[in-house]
Nucleic acid binder design. Structure first.
Lengths: 177, 177
DNA sequence: TTTAATACAAAACACATTGTTCGATTATAT
DNA sequence: ATATAATCGAACAATGTGTTTTGTATTAAA
């Protein structure tokens, strides 16, 4: 990939990300991004078809990184659900500014869609940890939904608390005693 | 209120609601609504400032009806949380087509905002039912979030199950044993 | 270093959407 | 029947989108 291309792509991501911190996604125009990134109009469209695709590719980047990690610095202790969740939260924290920006926006939907899709796969593996007598699919959306909400809340508070703390809280309210 | 006004307003709501079933909110144009409702452009703007305000007023209507009910047909038995939740679900079911339309759309955010705002007030009154040792605000967003998710799931399944069943499932996974 | 490829900038473009305005027409309430 | 008020329909400026073109500058490879 051409050095110029990478530079431009980075500039667009950066501008977009910064704009997301103070503006709602739907009110950010391509012109805003262009101005902030300091690039030509045609250049933007050479990289991304639309603003939506930009958001999508940004999400792709993030989730690829989070759920595809072979070699990563975070050391999980144990193999249970809780450290797994802490691990995910730790990764999200790496993309703090992006994630907070997206989740604070009116259109978290795309992001949440990705998130919940991945979380569903994860939680399905731990379903046996929960003995509650409700239909499995209900249990699953309950777990995924409440954990997503936890993440949103965490992000709204600028991810102040440690990932481990959040994971601990979550397990406390969720586990069947 | 003039009969014509009511008729127009209804036509707009109806058209909007129908469009929401097959289109994303953000991709519905005022022109689409006008065409479907079969009204003049200026008429639309005589009723609603913007498309956003239309959505807002639609949500206002729904939530006013749900959370302000003095005299309503649904008979709660008991005063606990579970019948209260069933009651809310029963009301949502009244607006089935609207609610499903909005929740299926890419922009449930406004609706969910309203919903969660109201649910927060409700759940705060029942916080003592839950003994878990986590911060209160975390417990609150957890309860509100997981119940919202439950509603979304219910709506995605066309509200097949009875409100009481949903409330029962929810209480089962949520209550501390 | 030279060269060919290509990413970029800048400007102009057609097009769609928005929200407003205005005069003519129609329905409503009394 | 009449005054009132809602609607229609057309035109309007303003803004945003996505494309195209032409010239320039940067890059990777020879």
């Amino acid at each position: 990939m051409d050095r110029r291309q990478r530079k431009t792509r980075e500039a667009i991501f950066k501008a977009f990300s910064e704009l997301l911190e103070s503006n709602k996604y739907e009110h950010i125009t391509v012109q805003d991004i262009i101005d902030k990134a300091n690039i030509g109009r045609s250049t933007f469209y050479a990289h991304f078809e639309t603003k939506d695709m930009l958001l999508k590719e940004m999400c792709d980047d993030i989730f690829e990184h989070i759920f595809d990690d072979e070699l990563c610095e975070y050391n999980e202790d144990g193999t249970g659900l809780q450290p797994k969740l802490a691990h995910i939260l730790w990764h999200l924290n790496e993309f703090k500014s992006n994630v907070c920006g997206i989740l604070a926006s009116q259109s978290r939907e795309l992001f949440l869609g990705y998130l919940q899709q991945n979380l569903t796969v994860l939680f399905r593996m731990y379903l046996n940890d929960f003995k509650t007598k409700v239909p499995e699919d209900f249990l699953l959306i309950y777990l995924v939904g409440s954990f997503s909400q936890t993440i949103i809340w965490w992000a709204e508070n600028k991810m102040n608390l440690a990932p481990e703390t959040i994971a601990e809280y979550y397990m406390k309210v969720v586990e069947t005693h």
